[in-house]
């Protein structure tokens, strides 16, 4: 935009922002902030086509025919599983559908009552220790959960998210159980009644320097729960049509970029660029902004602007 290129944004959601609007709760980012951004970007000359999913409402081929370059910033939406028994019981939910359904209700985007995942009056156990887990904790509190317990497999010092949000969650009444690793979601008649955890002690650092949790023998206990929210992070969710357009992936499903080093964030299809979580794996908002800006520079170089 600032270099005279006219961008058109295709977004499957009814508002811009992706996870900023639909994933991050209002108590961290008021939704008016993104509405104001849409208005300002629109004034600057960016065109938004909302409720428009590429591959469904509009075809990628059409975009490649009509535009000089295409940037993909589609995020990572496959939920990590714990891989333990009971994850399919009634009352066990992945973090993101829970958070999205709450935002949809608050913003009036809910299409039917069944979409909403509510935990009012319930004993909630949140599994995970990152920012998404904190968002689940604090959304549960606001929905009126009877009790919210956050179980995390490392200690407090080794939590991956923002300390500020852990402190906010604690002030709002969330209880933390550190060094607890879930081994089973316990159910009765198909419904969740608790989470079986074992205590862990921190062992040697892994390849990233974070100390690896190891199980303490004989430490099993069951935490009562009527609802379990799983916030173990996200893996790539490549679209089925990537292969049709020669967009190559890494083994783990992330898009391969900067293949020939000439243009930053160019994919194996020279006209297609990509950045953010779908390239680097799930990460912070600010790293996605950084990659978006670098990819824009790559596109400008490619277009010889």
């Amino acid at each position: 935009m600032r270099n005279g290129v006219t961008p058109v944004v295709f977004d499957r959601h009814p508002e811009i922002g992706g996870l900023l609007t639909f994933g991050i709760p209002e108590f961290k980012l008021d939704k008016d902030v993104m509405v104001r951004r849409r208005e300002i970007f629109t004034e600057m000359g960016v065109e938004f086509r909302l409720n428009t999913e590429v591959g469904k409402d509009i075809q990628m081929q059409k975009l490649l025919d009509e535009y000089d370059a295409v940037f993909l910033g589609m995020g990572t939406y496959t939920y990590m599983k714990g891989g333990f028994p009971g994850e399919d019981l009634e009352g066990v939910h992945d973090a993101l559908p829970f958070l999205i359904s709450n935002v949809n209700r608050c913003l009036g985007y809910e299409r039917s009552e069944e979409e909403y995942i509510g935990v009012a009056g319930k004993k909630v156990v949140v599994l995970g220790g990152g920012d998404t887990a904190m968002d689940c904790n604090r959304t549960s509190v606001r929905q009126g959960a009877e009790k919210v317990i956050c179980a995390y497999r490392r200690d407090e010092a080794n939590m991956p998210g923002s300390k500020r949000e852990v402190e906010n969650a604690r002030e709002e009444g969330v209880e933390f159980m550190f060094n607890r690793q879930p081994v089973e979601v316990v159910g009765e008649n198909g419904k969740v009644v608790g989470v079986k955890v074992v205590t862990t002690a921190l062992g040697e650092p892994d390849e990233n320097g974070r100390r690896r949790p190891e199980v303490v023998a004989g430490s099993e206990e069951v935490i009562d729960a009527d609802a379990v929210l799983v916030a173990f992070g996200f893996r790539p969710s490549p679209a089925p049509w990537f292969a049709d357009f020669g967009i190559d992936l890494e083994q783990d499903g992330r898009i391969t970029t900067s293949v020939n080093q000439q243009y930053a964030f160019q994919t194996s299809n020279p006209k297609v660029f990509a950045g953010g979580d779908m390239v680097r794996g799930s990460d912070l908002v600010v790293t996605a902004i950084d990659e978006g800006r670098k990819a824009a520079e790559g596109i400008l170089d490619y277009l010889e602007v």
Binding site: L20, I24, K28, L29, V33, M34, R37, D131, G161, S162, K163, R164, E165, L284, V285, V286, I289, G292, R293
Partner: peptide, 17 residues
């Protein structure tokens, strides 16, 4: 340097950055 500074001011983990 930033396309959405008011968003980063709100959601970044500044204590780690």
């Amino acid at each position: 340097t930033n396309s959405l500074p008011e968003v980063c001011g709100r959601v970044c983990p500044q204590d780690r950055l």
